[in-house]
Computed example of a mutant assay.
Amino acid sequence: MSEPDGAPGPERSSALPAVRAEPPKRVRVQHLRAAKENGEKLTMLTAYDLPTARIFDAAGIDMLLVGDSYGDNMLGHSGTIPVTVDELIPAVRAVARGAKRAMVVADLPFGSYEASPQQAMASATRMLKAGGAHAVKFEGGRRVADHVRLLTDSGVPVVGHLGFTPQSENILGGKRVQGRGDESAEQVVADAKAIEAAGAVAVVLEMVPAAVAERVSGELSIPTIGIGAGAACDGQVLVWLDMVGMGGWSPRFAKQFAAVGAEMDRATRAYIDEVRAGTFPGREHTYWD
């Protein structure tokens, strides 16, 4: 018998693990591909510490990226280039301890993978063994296809990164949109196909025209994760400080979903006022014999 008008049809099961209290099911590489096949959007945020990872994980984020953005967002560097593997590993370890469901992806910072596939493997091994990451991410297309292949063949999931690649900012001439014009767009497509063929499980597309990102997303069988690349990507990622209004300068593509920075400022000023006025701590905050 057919369903009456307006009645709900059979519920389609999600390709992604459900968000539940205990025990959570980990997001794995097969879930990423299944989500793309089902047309389910993937979600990713950066995280650099345990409390933040716990909050995002409990909320149901699919992937947590311990990015080299740790450098300019948390360590005070002017960009990502100064970040080292040694600096990132404690952050990766903290995030991995806080994430029960999300896939934890660790960036390989500048200088830790470019020289050879073997260098990339050594850095990735540290991220998995010492940091507890489930996958690694690094920048580049055809030039790092052999790196992706070695890691994949060795059991390390790899997320690619194309378009604007912050580690190459100096040679790109600054924070500039990539993939504009037919020739540049073709290079992005060719790079994406090369790392897919090498075994990448997903690819981040940063600051590329929406039409180019849509084309790449349509031609790949692995998910695309956009950041400043339009809504046609298979998922989205943001730096969490930009997402909640904690950053300083914020790029055009970073929507602010909350004003956490302003609320922290308000709370800090209230704390200062109460301490100086002698109203904090009150009786309810004090131990008595």
Rank of each mutant, 00 (worst) to 15 (best):
M1I: 15
M1K: 13
P4W: 01
S13P: 10
S14Y: 07
A15K: 03
A15P: 14
P17N: 04
P17G: 10
A18Y: 10
A18V: 15
R20P: 04
P24R: 07
K25P: 00
Q30N: 13
L32N: 03
K36M: 10
E40I: 09
K41T: 14
T43K: 05
T43R: 14
M44G: 10
P51E: 01
F56D: 02
A58V: 10
A59E: 14
I61L: 12
I61A: 09
L64W: 06
L65C: 01
G67W: 01
Y70T: 09
G71A: 13
G71C: 06
G71D: 02
M74D: 14
H77S: 08
S78V: 11
G79A: 08
L88I: 12
I89A: 10
A91I: 11
V92W: 02
V95N: 01
A96L: 06
A96H: 02
R97W: 01
M103V: 05
V104G: 05
D107V: 07
D107C: 11
G111I: 01
A115G: 05
A115P: 03
A115K: 15
S116R: 08
P117C: 11
A120Q: 05
A120P: 05
A122G: 02
A124P: 07
R126M: 09
R126V: 15
M127I: 05
L128K: 08
K129C: 00
G132A: 06
G132V: 07
A133Y: 09
K137C: 12
F138S: 08
E139K: 06
G140Y: 03
G141I: 02
G141M: 03
R149F: 02
R149A: 14
L150K: 00
L151W: 00
G155C: 08
L162H: 01
G163K: 05
F164A: 01
F164D: 03
F164I: 08
P166H: 10
S168N: 13
N170P: 00
N170Q: 15
I171Q: 13
I171A: 15
L172T: 14
G173V: 08
K175W: 14
R176K: 15
V177A: 07
V177D: 02
R180I: 12
D182W: 04
A185F: 01
E186R: 15
V188C: 04
A190V: 03
I195F: 05
A198S: 06
A200D: 09
A202F: 08
V203K: 09
V204Y: 11
P209M: 06
A210K: 11
A211C: 03
E214N: 13
R215Y: 12
V216W: 12
V216P: 10
S217V: 07
I222F: 05
T224V: 04
A229P: 02
A231C: 07
A231Y: 12
V237F: 11
V237D: 10
L238F: 14
L241A: 13
D242A: 01
D242G: 05
M246L: 15
G248C: 05
S250Y: 04
F253T: 00
A254V: 06
K255S: 10
G261R: 00
A262C: 04
A262T: 11
D265L: 13
R266M: 11
A270K: 14
I272W: 12
G278C: 03
G278Q: 06
T279R: 10
Y287V: 13
Y287F: 15
